[in-house]
């Protein structure tokens, strides 16, 4: 999916965020338990995991908003435990279910943030206007936020990040509670940010969205990152292979022929004319060639990209049986 898939897990050439042994304990229980990760500049990084797995705590530690029990994290070269103001000046954060001051207008809400940022008055007005038009709220700029829908609020939150000209945007469950249309629009805005070179850290439990826009993901479970990497890589690792190709063809010995294709690990015969191949790579051209070569009639050739959902389900399933534990 992206060029970063070739990097080994956990490291990036130009990390804007680097965590080493990052831990947050409440009493004896570790909410975040010694995690390591690197996030490269311009990357869209997904944090996955069930509620309470430590995603938000990790984010808060990156912003210096909660104490770090041990380990360290480095954001844009700054230690948020020591220099949180510098970090927060450069990082935009859209909290889970962001709120605004209802009695103030969209512009006023952003102006408050801009003043806290210490922006000059002229710059402030220009940046706010630009940010609001970027997220499509220019025509409601002087309306009170009380009248805004959930989607508009999320977009206003994003406008705040844009206005801040943040180098890193941290979005905590940005699409939860949005209708499909609003979700699509919002994801479009995230991609625009990525196109501008903003590093995006996205926490979500909506796996299909994460899969769609994230370059890499980290899977959280009970305070640990249990899996990290690009989705195809994870598929190979968890599912054993990355690609599932379904072939619908008629002809003799097709299953045998398909099995002989290099890289195919398994061929299932689903029906007389339907087969499912599991392969390490996209083997559709080879499969087509094999069918044609065997005088078969190729009716349909489809590939299932490795699904995060499948990976997620499989991983937690194996985990439940007490199988391999992938320490982060």
């Amino acid at each position: 999916m992206s060029d970063q898939s070739s990097h080994s897990r956990g490291t990036a050439p130009d990390p804007v965020i680097a965590a080493r042994g990052l831990t947050r304990r409440y009493g004896a229980t570790a909410v975040v338990d010694a995690i390591d990760f690197d996030i490269a500049r311009g990357e869209v990084f997904g944090l996955l995991g069930p509620n309470g797995a430590g995603k938000t705590t990790t984010i808060l530690m990156m912003l210096g908003l909660t104490e770090i029990s041990s380990g360290e994290v480095n954001v844009l070269g700054f230690n948020p435990a020591r220099e949180p103001l510098k970090v927060k000046r450069r990082v935009g954060y859209l909290p889970d279910a962001v709120g605004f001051y209802d009695q103030l207008t969209a512009t006023e809400n952003l102006a408050y943030t801009a003043k806290l940022m210490g922006l000059a008055r002229a710059e402030r007005a220009r940046l706010i206007e630009a940010a609001l038009s970027r997220v499509g709220l220019a025509d409601v700029a002087s309306k009170r936020v009380a009248t805004f829908s959930r989607g508009m609020r999320q977009r206003l939150g994003l406008a705040e990040i844009i206005m801040k000209r943040a180098e890193i945007a941290i979005l905590d469950e940005p699409t939860s509670g949005l209708d499909p249309q609003a979700t699509l629009e919002f994801l479009g805005l995230i991609e625009e940010l990525k196109a501008e070179g903003v590093t995006v850290l996205l926490s979500s439990h909506m796996l299909d969205q994460v899969q769609r826009i994230c370059d890499r993901v980290a899977l959280f479970k009970a305070g640990r990152i249990v899996l990290m990497g690009a989705v195809p890589e994870l598929a190979v690792k968890v599912l054993g292979a990355g690609f599932v190709v379904e072939v619908e063809a008629e002809g003799p010995g097709i299953a045998r022929r398909l099995a002989m294709i290099p890289g195919v690990t398994q061929v299932e015969t689903l029906a007389a004319d339907r087969f499912r191949m599991t392969a390490e790579r996209d083997v559709r051209p080879d499969a087509a060639r094999a069918v044609v070569a065997g005088d078969g009639a190729l009716r349909r050739l489809s590939v299932d990209e490795p699904s995060l959902e499948a990976i997620y389900a499989r991983y937690f399933q194996t985990e439940a049986t007490g199988d391999v534990r992938h320490a982060a």
Binding site: L85, P95, T113
Partner: peptide, 9 residues
């Protein structure tokens, strides 16, 4: 949390 994510303590 939104306000505290701004550069203030």
């Amino acid at each position: 949390s939104r306000i505290l994510a701004q550069p203030i303590y």
